[in-house]
Design a binder for these strands. Structure first.
Lengths: 192, 192
DNA sequence: GATTTAATTTACTTATTAGTAAGTATATTA
DNA sequence: TAATATACTTACTAATAAGTAAATTAAATC
């Protein structure tokens, strides 16, 4: 693989960061090129259109998620630890200079996005939702957590809360994220 | 008042709508002027800068909220109905072609916003948070609802969930909003 | 070492953006 | 009805955006 594609990887990393910090419409190729010390046209070589860059960023995030949840080591972890893993992703974004999650960022931009990006982010959010619903259902059956209602609805409530708290943390301070996480735990009566 | 300021009001209405549908960076004066059948410069007459327009939209939303929560008729309503009123605001946005809430929209745009708008949206979100925390605390003391933990943390969990669900509803369908609302009610063990 | 492929720069284009200055029409008021 | 604000339009500017074509450099392969 050598040095080739190194710029491509840097573009993707920075693009992801910019999307989660500023949103898809509020970053330009110039943000990336100036940071990396290259020219705009170099980015167009790797990603002919901004849409293609956005698509790939969504794809990468989706693949990271899919690989992880299907990983043998991960699947045997206790429910509480799998939930913690999900929360750690959000916490990682919080600590990376208050990124919001990719889904939340693209959801507010949604109607301004190219159709291929809309489809990509829809698929990702559906997968996350399904995974968490299954995890909660399993946990309830095992008796390590408890909640009222359908596991799918509870999953949605938690996911929206996590996404929303990354956003509100920008306005109200980062401590509130941890309080929301604590509250989610309380609401689940989680036992470790 | 006559016909004067009618255009100004229409600009503010449309601006608010665009901010909640597309975000602050993804709408231009052209979106407004073409829709209203006027010229861009007419908007600049009423709002010299986009920042001044954005500021006023936040201010209006804040004033609507403040007026309502301090209204004598509203303050004597049962806790459950006051909570319903809050949820109805979100539902109204959902039904208005999937607007997201102003706070959520501006939170994802936050680092790209003029400082005056950042300050405005911070104040608004703090006020909403404080109001809901007090409402929940009162409700718990009255025994019409119950939850674990601090009322402030529970308020944050609910607010983030509502904001997040307007966003996720764009990706996963509007039914999920109602499910999240149902789940919030279940989690509060609310009695009417 | 020559050739081919990959990666990048230079130099553009076209479109859109917020914003301005000067002039014109429409009300309102003295 | 003349004077005066108010509410615009016309006609710009300057900046920034994404994207392209052609030339150039760097790297890998034959």
């Amino acid at each position: 693989m050598s040095i080739r594609q190194a710029t491509r990887r840097k573009i993707l990393e920075l693009g992801e960061d910019l999307m989660q910090k500023r949103g898809f419409n509020a970053f330009s190729y110039h943000h990336i090129s100036s940071e990396l010390g290259i020219k705009n046209a170099a980015i167009h070589y790797h990603f002919p259109s901004k849409e293609s860059l956005g698509r790939q960023i969504i794809k990468n995030t989706h693949e990271r998620f899919s690989k992880w949840i299907s990983h043998p080591e991960h699947r045997v972890l206790p429910v509480a630890e799998q939930l913690d893993w999900l929360i750690k992703i959000y916490q990682y974004n919080l600590e990376k200079e208050n990124r919001v999650c990719l889904i939340g960022s693209l959801a507010t931009d949604y109607y301004t996005l190219p159709l291929s990006m809309q489809a990509g982010i829809r698929k990702l959010s559906a997968d996350v939702q399904n995974w968490l619903a299954q995890l909660l259902e399993g946990g309830r059956q095992q008796g390590v957590l408890s909640f009222e209602g359908k596991s799918r609805d509870k999953a949605l409530t938690i996911l929206t809360s996590l996404a929303g708290s990354l956003q509100l943390a920008r306005l109200l301070g980062n401590e509130m994220f941890h309080k929301v996480v604590e509250q989610i735990h309380l609401d689940l009566k989680l036992t470790y």
